[in-house]
Design a binder for these strands. Sequence first.
DNA 1: CTATTACCCTATCGGTTTACTAGGTTTTAG
DNA 2: CTAAAACCTAGTAAACCGATAGGGTAATAG
Lengths: 138, 138
Amino acid sequence: MLSKKTKYGIKALAYIARKKDRKPVQTSEISESENISQKFLESILLELRKSGFLGSKKGKGGGYYLIKEPEEIKMTAVIRVLEGPIAMVPCVSLNYYEKCDDCPDENTCAVHKLMIQVRDASLNILGENTLRDIATSQ
Amino acid sequence: MLSKKTKYGIKALAYIARKKDRKPVQTSEISESENISQKFLESILLELRKSGFLGSKKGKGGGYYLIKEPEEIKMTAVIRVLEGPIAMVPCVSLNYYEKCDDCPDENTCAVHKLMIQVRDASLNILGENTLRDIATSQ
DNA sequence: CTATTACCCTATCGGTTTACTAGGTTTTAG
DNA sequence: CTAAAACCTAGTAAACCGATAGGGTAATAG
């Protein structure tokens, strides 16, 4: 299940991407338009700035803006930063790998191979969708 | 992320499916072989019995056995019972649909269409894999 | 210069879920 | 009878989630 944090983060990024100009967008504007608690949204946008997706401008007329072009931002990258692993099980995660303590051998694990297939299918979709795709999909 | 419960449940089903005869398998045997806490496993197998995947026999020599053939059991069905929805967001779930309270219109939601694609990709994999496939995949 | 705007930071908190444990009851084979 | 096994009810410690509180700090318009 996707957390609200991730969901809100994606929506906010899409909102900013839909703006024609590159002027900073205020959190208050996004929170009102997308029905997201402003304080909660602030913490999410802050995280997106620290991880290199957004830039920010302080003071009057400030806000957040995209650093890269929307088509350069893959959804895999966004989800990995906000949500963490895309895989359903740590032992098949590419970026957040962890060994299962109950499995002596991953190659003989019934769950392992199945979850690799699911992971690859998800990675395919999320890797070929960019912020541009989801921002313009209305 | 898949819960331990679901993971253990799948492993247990696979273990039972690998047995040639149809004699009941005890929880103690499965828990030792698969490194699962026995008490926790008990509750999982009980749930799998109540949802129609397993039969049980009480008393000495009792245990759990498959009711259907392994190739008749799709992994979608197992996961839906143990884990719940397969979709990453309730608003795209086929079996556990729920409306988002922040979305006025699903058709204009940036997250919605993306998550439908992910769901369909996952459903494809999990729907074409049966218990037979994952039990014999070593 | 000063008021305002809006980003930035820390801390906390109630609620839910997760993974598991404890302890007992019922049923059955031998 | 008795040992073994499923069955049932509760409880619980820890983690996580979504949000809120309350400010601090930097930049800018006028």
